[in-house]
Design a protein around this nucleic acid. Structure first.
Length: 518
RNA sequence: GGCCCCGUCGUCUAGCCUGGUCUAGGACAUUGGCUUUUCAAGCCAAGUACACGGGUUCAAAUCCCGUCGGGGCUACCA
């Protein structure tokens, strides 16, 4: 058996989420590592939906996972896909090992669990939930490990038949051997060993006829010819049960690799309540998929170099299981912010606009502005041009695309007057007012086409020099007059984006507000 | 409680397998500086870590043992 592995089967890996309504950020990383491993080895990456818990099924959960994986750029080869553009979307499947949605495979699990029953590797258990609960309480009180006591294992054929005839509800449990131990070599953790005596007789088939994770997972991984199970570390303790199942079926188990957990700041398993855990939350806030993926890739894995910025393709080329860390990694949003900002800074103007557009269009203000533009003949083009100008001006300080509407507001709407902010350091109000008026004269004498960042800077600085005006005492009030803010891009860039007419309007208004203020 | 996993700056990590080149490297964050009309970006600099104890060895972050600490699992959830 072992020797056959040397033939090197083609790599097949899978991401197997539960459709609980959204894709967890930890799930994204698991999916990513599977994806990278598949790409690295020219293998197949499969999406399988594990929806065997009817109580937790969420409508639209499958679609949401597919959409999120697509958003992240993790293209899978087999599994359920989404079709249809506008409005109606339908699910279809691709691949030869489906269906890839477990609730559609119920008969498969049933025939397999019957095989185990015949072989004596599993047995029916008629114990009530109440008895099980009592049993656990008693075990806890005695400080014993809490596990099934095997009562129904000892049932005679007749007793079993009788219970069946009476229609007593039952589950099917794995018959775990009393003696020996189950061990395996984890690709990340190395050798791990469990005493069989301490492995519970796991439920395989629930009383509603649905399989548990353990059964469905093993049957599907085998049938889908999965070669490497790459999953979260929370599954490490149940791996011996899975191994026992492979053995009971007479199947060769895949390789296992258990990924370190993603952690909250307090080092507990990453969970809601301490921040966002849904990938779509990050998408909504305006994190770029490439940045999120890059960041998450480096949480628990590193390429062994100081480099930190990698495209998906580069990640796939560099990826290797031995370089995955053993210990959990805190999800540190501050570093994500840095990386997202970095990615945004690298964007070409056209791409920046394309990526930012959805966020801009959500903003009330810009929608209104858009309508105004659309009234013109080539309004759309003009609007795009304006948006690009504004975005390029702000580009180096954008951290999340979702912040754009707020930070660019003053480009589209006259900011509220801020007379207290206008004077530079201890420049007297009267001087500030006078400087603004002189500046206004200069600006109105300038041709419209001089309103570019470079040209304005050149002309205004020369004028400052000539008049022996201080840069701060003019440029600070100018910038505040234009933006209404203590922090903003520089006055030349803003003035260029605003255009001559609007600049003059705002400066005049600021000067006036000083007059009425003082 | 039981079982399992883990333990290098605040955080992500390099180094550990194949002891010396580690007075422990990089990144984010922080602080200071430069630039300067603010913010941002950029550049420069600073501080901060081998959990603890015991071995082995000429030499240990690196190998061994123990302690402590953290986490995960312990469902007819996945």
């Amino acid at each position: 058996m072992r020797g056959e592995r040397a033939q090197k089967k083609p790599v097949r890996v899978r991401f197997a989420p539960s459709p609980t309504g959204f894709l967890h950020i930890g799930g994204l990383r698991t999916a990513l590592y599977n994806f990278l491993f598949a790409r690295k080895h020219g293998g197949t990456f499969i999406l399988r939906i594990e929806d065997t818990d009817r109580t937790r099924a969420v409508p639209g959960g499958v679609e949401n996972i597919i959409q999120t994986l697509t958003w992240a750029g993790l293209q899978y080869d087999e599994g359920p896909f989404l079709d249809g553009e506008n409005g109606k979307q339908t699910l279809y499947e691709k691949g030869n090992c489906g269906p890839y949605i477990q609730s559609m495979r119920l008969p498969t699990y049933k025939t397999h669990v019957e095989e185990l029953l015949r072989k004596g590797s599993a047995y029916r258990c008629f114990c009530t939930p109440e008895r099980l609960e009592e049993m656990r309480q008693a075990q806890m009180a005695r400080k014993e490990p809490t596990m099934y006591d095997g009562r129904c294992k000892k049932l005679s054929g007749e007793e079993c038949k009788a219970a069946l005839q009476q229609g007593t509800p039952f589950v099917i449990r794995l018959n775990v051997p009393e003696e020996g131990s189950t061990e395996f070599v984890d690709r990340i953790h190395g050798e791990v060993r469990f005493k069989n005596r301490l492995i519970d007789d796991q439920v395989l088939l629930k009383s509603d006829g649905f399989p548990t994770y353990h059964l469905a997972n093993v049957v599907d991984d085998h049938l889908m010819r999965i070669t490497h199970v790459i999953r979260g570390e929370e599954w490490l303790p149940s791996t011996p049960k899975h191994l026992l199942l492979y053995r009971a079926f007479g199947w060769e188990p895949p390789e296992f690799a258990h990924l370190p957990l993603l952690l909250n700041a307090d080092r507990s398993k990453l969970s809601k309540r301490q921040g966002d855990v849904a990938v779509e939350d990050y998408a909504k806030k305006g994190y770029l998929p490439d940045a999120l993926v890059n960041f998450v890739a480096l949480l628990g894995w590193n390429p062994g170099s100081d480099r930190e910025v990698y495209s998906l393709k580069e990640l796939a080329a560099a990826f290797s299981l031995p370089r995955v860390n053993k210990s959990g990694a805190v999800f540190n949003v501050e570093k994500l912010d840095w990386m997202n900002g970095y990615y945004i800074r690298q964007l070409k103007p056209g791409d920046l606009v394309r990526q930012a557009l959805p966020y801009l269009l959500h903003a009330e203000l810009i929608r209104k502005e858009g309508k105004r533009y659309m009234a013109h003949e080539n309004g759309e083009e003009l609007l795009m041009k304006k948006l690009e100008t504004v975005l390029v001006v702000e580009q180096e300080r954008i951290v999340r695309l979702g912040d754009i509407p707020h930070m660019t507001e003053f480009f589209f709407r006259l900011p509220p007057p801020t007379p207290d902010l206008i004077p530079w350091k201890d420049t007297p109000l009267s001087v500030t007012k006078e400087r603004l008026e002189r500046l206004s004269e200069l600006l109105s004498s300038l041709p419209t086409k001089a309103f570019t960042e470079k040209e304005l800077e050149k002309r205004i600085k020369a004028w400052l020099e000539e008049r022996k005006f201080g840069t701060g005492e003019v440029l600070w009030p100018m910038r505040v007059a234009l933006t209404g803010r203590a922090a903003s891009p520089g006055p030349f860039a803003v003035a260029a984006a605003l255009g001559k007419e609007e600049v003059l309007r705002r400066i005049a208004r600021a000067a006036k507000s000083i007059a009425s203020h003082g």
